[in-house]
């Protein structure tokens, strides 16, 4: 069925099914970390996750109907935000820890070995705490992730051709479906109408923090690459080059 004909419940069930599987770093961790070893583990994991992220995006109803140019632009704009929201979701029940993968968990203090990363860890932990306070539900999490993807490029491009305009209109309708799905997910929590409106506001306001941390993270990774602390390759290199 086309996403516009789906009920919010159906739409959420489709994006829940699209969720990527758990991913393992599968490296022999030599502790204590060095700046290079920690950066290498983080970028290796990000590269693996990126491949799965493309597969995830393609499973979001309506995404592959957008123009290929829009699909590329959206993914290159939001990839680090998506990785960070996933990290927050995995870490939400582990205060003070960042669960990058089941076999790669870091305490805040372990960030000390990489110059400039502690500040980013603190921002990630703070946003995770906020999600913990709000008792983020899985249905809400999957909607927020889809919202990040579809909203990522909305204010940085303006359609010129008829094809671009058509894709943009499809994108806006798709965002409507995701917003409807999030509203529906919130409505299932047994809150008053006012509390539902407030929750929607609080959840969507967190997205601006995630964009901010992602921008910081992007600058940090670019600087680590420039200083040759870490070798960035494959899909991650393509995404990073695209965004610097």
């Amino acid at each position: 069925a086309h996403h516009s004909a789906m009920s919010p419940e159906e739409f959420i069930s489709r994006i829940m099914e699209a969720e990527p599987p758990e991913i393992y770093l599968m490296e022999d961790m030599k502790k204590p970390f060095t700046e290079a070893s920690m950066m290498m583990s983080l970028t290796n994991l990000a590269d693996k996750e990126l491949v799965l992220m493309i597969s995830w995006a393609k499973k979001i109803p309506g995404f592959v109907e957008l123009s290929l140019a829009d699909q590329i632009h959206l993914l290159k704009c939001c990839w680090l935000e998506i990785l960070m929201l996933g990290l927050m979701w995995r870490s939400v029940d582990h205060p003070g820890k960042l669960i990058f993968s089941p076999d790669f968990k870091l305490n805040r203090e372990e960030g000390q070995c990489v110059e400039g990363i502690m500040e980013i860890f603190d921002m990630l932990l703070a946003a995770t705490s906020r999600f913990r306070e709000l008792k983020l539900q899985r249905e809400e999490y999957v909607c927020l992730k889809a919202m990040i993807l579809l909203n990522s490029n909305l204010c940085t491009s303006s359609p010129q051709t008829a094809e671009e305009l058509e894709s943009r209109n499809k994108l806006l309708r798709l965002l409507d479906s995701v917003i409807d799905a999030l509203v529906w997910a919130i409505s299932k929590l047994g809150l008053s109408t006012q509390q539902q409106t407030l929750r929607l506001g609080h959840l969507t306001m967190l997205l601006s923090h995630i964009r901010h941390v992602s921008n910081k993270g992007m600058d940090h990774l670019s600087s680590m690459k420039r200083k040759n602390v870490v070798l960035v390759y494959d899909l991650l290199l393509e995404m990073l080059d695209a965004s610097t």
């Binding site: 799965l52 597969s55 393509e238």
Partner: peptide
């Protein structure tokens, strides 16, 4: 540089009907 050349892997993964997991 065209979008396709600049984002070779991303383009390939988006266009390919095979699961990216298999490609990886």
């Amino acid at each position: 540089t065209s979008l396709k050349e600049k984002h070779k892997i991303l383009h390939q993964l988006l266009q390919n009907s095979t699961s990216p997991v298999d490609l990886a």
